[in-house]
Design a protein around this nucleic acid. Structure first.
Lengths: 155, 155
DNA sequence: GCTAATTCCGACCGTCATGGTCAGAATTAT
DNA sequence: ATAATTCTGACCATGACGGTCGGAATTAGC
């Protein structure tokens, strides 16, 4: 139940592109530098993002990548989707699930749970845009971290 | 972003234990039979569940496992936790995260997002108990599948 | 006490996704 | 021409995952 580094990296890269939005293309060399991520790997991810229609590329000397849309119009869900594929806790709740292939259809006690979980995850990712991400960052400094984990009380 | 089969299997096994709650111990051989899961693998999981305090075991001929608490008092979150460890989309939001080890502290744009995500996931899993799981199953038959996600006509 | 049914335990293993590298081709500004 | 880039495909090492195996310990029933 974790987000792959791939998705994480992809999001970080997109965040950089979002910051540079408006000011010409940003090269992945630059992204690699400021985010401390392996350049060769970012190249791969950038390819996926481009093919997914989230960024546009400019080749050659002053080339790089640009968001295909304004940061307000790109959700984290889209980013995760394009680099990691659909978010789905178990196969039977993914959209390409072939009905009946589970064999436990109908007698499955937990499918409802997984559907709820998927919906919940998608909701969080869908309602967060790149714009909010780079904006929240400014807020972070202002906000004092008060109640990070009220956990460890129930289980 | 998926639940491991391990967690899935663990939950299915716990569901069986929940069904058998009240009527003596249930052997994993039985669980393996009705859930069509590999017995040897279930043994491992059962061990984890026992060490995690979720079930109690009886050895010997009419042995097996029993829930340590009533099904209403065991959340899915607990089950997932004990077999899969903490649910955490990225390391920096897990409870054993050492502050500062990320190096991007303070300048990280997405930590807030991951915290929200983790909270959201935990909430769904925490508020679902084994009792609800086996109860919902009875509802499934009664309820006509009308609106719940017109995905693939589902199962 | 023997036997069969079980839990228990540790070791082992093949496969697969992941995270990452590399070499080189194509493109373009200077 | 050269240097900075994107682009592409191949390659690779590691680890987690899902699973097996052999055998020891325990206990009910005969």
């Amino acid at each position: 139940m974790r987000v792959s580094s791939k998705a994480h990296y992809g999001l970080r890269m997109m965040t950089e592109f979002a910051r540079a939005y408006g000011t010409g293309p940003l090269s992945i060399a630059e992204v690699a530098r400021v985010e401390h991520l392996p350049l060769a790997y970012l190249e791969q991810l950038a390819g996926q993002l481009r093919r997914g229609g989230l960024v546009e590329s400019t080749r050659g000397v002053h080339g790089g990548y640009t968001l295909a849309r304004a940061p307000e119009l790109i959700s984290v869900l889209e980013v995760v989707h394009t680099v990691e594929g659909e978010v789905s806790p178990v196969e039977c709740v993914s959209s390409d699930y072939v009905a009946g292939s589970c064999g436990r259809d109908g007698e499955c006690a937990s499918r409802g749970l997984w559907l709820r979980l998927k919906e919940s995850i998608d909701a969080v990712l869908r309602q967060t845009t790149l714009a909010e991400l780079i904006h929240d960052q400014s807020l972070l400094a202002a906000m004092a971290p008060s109640d990070p984990h009220p956990e460890a009380s129930h289980d």
